[in-house]
Simulated scan of single mutants.
Amino acid sequence: MSRIDKLVDKKYCDNLLDNEAPLSKDEKSRILQMTMDKMPTNNMKKYKKKKLLVGILVATMMLSTVVMANEYFELNLDNKLLSYLNIDKNNESLNGAGSYINKSVSENNLKLNVKQTLGDKHSLYILIDVEAPKDMIIPKYATFNEMDVNLRKSSSSGWGLLDIEDENPKDNKKSYIISFSTEGKLKRNDISIDFENFGYYKEDGEFITLVEGSWKISWKLDYTDVSKEVVLNKFVTTKKNKYFITTVNISPISVSANIIGQNNGDFMIQEVTLKDGTIYKEQDFISSGASSSFLKAFSNVEFSKAVDVNEVDSITIDDKVIKLNN
C-alpha cells in the first residue's frame, strides 16, 4: 500500500497538471481507496497484487520511454546532410522532414543511388551517391553533362547539383546534394531525376565524358512538412513597386513568399532577420530564386544553417523590411 501511494505521490499527482495545486495526503489516500473499492472482492489479495504490479510496471515503462526520448533524440539524417546544412542532430524541429529513399539505377557500370531527402513545403535536398567503375578514380569536380528534375504536378521550379566534400578523393565513389525548390507543393508529389553523361569540365568549358549514358530515378515524396505558414494579406509600397504579399512559409531550412504585383523581377527575398538581430543575406543562402507569371510571383531562399522557425522576425524584399508577426 505504501509503495503505490509513494509512486502516485512522486510521479503523478504533484506534476500531473502544471497549473494545479498538489493533492493533499488525505486526497491521495481517498483516491487510492476509491480505486481499491472498485476492484472485485473475490480473491482480492491476489487480484490487487497482480493489478498493482502491472500498473506500476506500465507506468514505469511509460516514464522511462519519455525520459529516453527526451535525452536521446537524434535526427535520422545522414551525416553528409547534417554537415553540409549545419544541422544539429538533436534538432527536433526537423523531426519527420527526412526520408530514406535508397533507390538505385545502373548503366555502363556507373551506379546512382538516391539515398535520402530532407524537405519542407517548397524546398527539398536530395542526397545522391555515385559509384563509378572500380578502376576509375572520380575527379574532384566530376559532374553530369545534363540533369533535369521533374514533378508529376508541375510548377515553376529550380535546382542545382551541389558538390560536397569527398571523404576519399582517391576512390570510385562520390556524393552530391541536389538543392530543389518549387512554387508548388512537394509533399506526396511524384518526382523524377534524369542524368546524362558523367564526366568533368575543362577550364576552357569543354566537357570530358568519363562514363557515357543516361540514368533516371523516380519516387514519391513522403515526409512531414514542418513549415509554418504566416498569413499577411497586406500591401507593401517601395520606391519602385507596390505589391500585395499573401503568405510567407518558414521552415528550419527555407523561407518563401507568395506575392501579387507587377515588376515581379524585383520580388527576390534579400534578407531574413531573426528576433535577436541576426541577419541572413545572400552569402548565407545555399540558393535563392524567384518565379513569376503575369501578376503572381514566388520567391524562395534556402539557408546554409538551420534556423529556429519561431525566431524569424522579418524578411526584406525590394529593400523593404516586412514584419511577419511570427
Rank of each mutant, 00 (worst) to 15 (best):
N189S: 08
D222K: 14
T224N: 14
F198T: 05
E203S: 13
E229I: 06
W215A: 05
W215T: 03
S218H: 06
W219P: 12
W215R: 08
K202W: 01
K220T: 12
S227P: 08
D222Y: 11
G205N: 12
K228G: 01
D225C: 02
N189Y: 07
E212Q: 11
F198K: 13
T224C: 05
W215L: 01
L232S: 06
Y200G: 06
V226C: 05
D204W: 10
L210N: 11
E229C: 00
F235C: 03
N233D: 12
Y200K: 15
N233K: 10
F195D: 12
F195E: 11
K202V: 00
K234G: 04
K216G: 04
T209N: 06
G199I: 03
G199Q: 09
E212H: 04
D225K: 01
T209A: 06
N197R: 12
D222V: 09
W215G: 03
E212C: 00
F235A: 08
T209M: 02
L232E: 03
Y201P: 05
G213Q: 03
D225F: 02
K234I: 05
E206M: 02
F195S: 10
N189M: 02
K228L: 07
E196R: 15
I193Y: 11
K220P: 01
T237L: 06
N197F: 05
F198P: 04
K202G: 00
N233A: 01
V231A: 12
E203I: 09
W219G: 09
V230Y: 06
W219F: 15
L210P: 09
N197C: 06
E212F: 01
R188G: 03
D225M: 01
N189A: 05
W215P: 03
S227F: 11
I193N: 06
I208K: 13
V236T: 13
I191W: 09
D194R: 13
V226G: 00
K202P: 00
N189I: 15
I193M: 12
S227C: 06
W219A: 02
D190E: 14
N233C: 00
Y223R: 08
F195M: 12
D225R: 02
G213I: 07
V230G: 09
D194I: 12
D190C: 03
S214P: 00
I217L: 12
K220L: 08
I208F: 07
W215H: 10
T237F: 03
T224R: 15
Y200V: 08
K234M: 09
D190M: 09
I217K: 13
F235R: 11
D225A: 01
F195Y: 14
G199A: 08
W219L: 02
E203V: 14
K228S: 04
G199N: 09
G213D: 11
I193F: 12
E196N: 10
D225T: 00
I208A: 03
I193R: 08
N233P: 00
V230N: 14
E196D: 08
I193T: 13
Y223W: 06
K234V: 04
V231W: 06
K234S: 12
E206A: 09
V211C: 10
D204E: 13
N233I: 00
W215Q: 10
L221W: 10
W219R: 05
E203F: 08
T237D: 11
K234W: 07
V226F: 07
N197D: 15
I191N: 04
V211E: 11
I191V: 15
K202N: 15
G205W: 07
G213A: 09
D222I: 08
G199D: 00
K216H: 08
V230K: 14
R188S: 11
V231P: 01
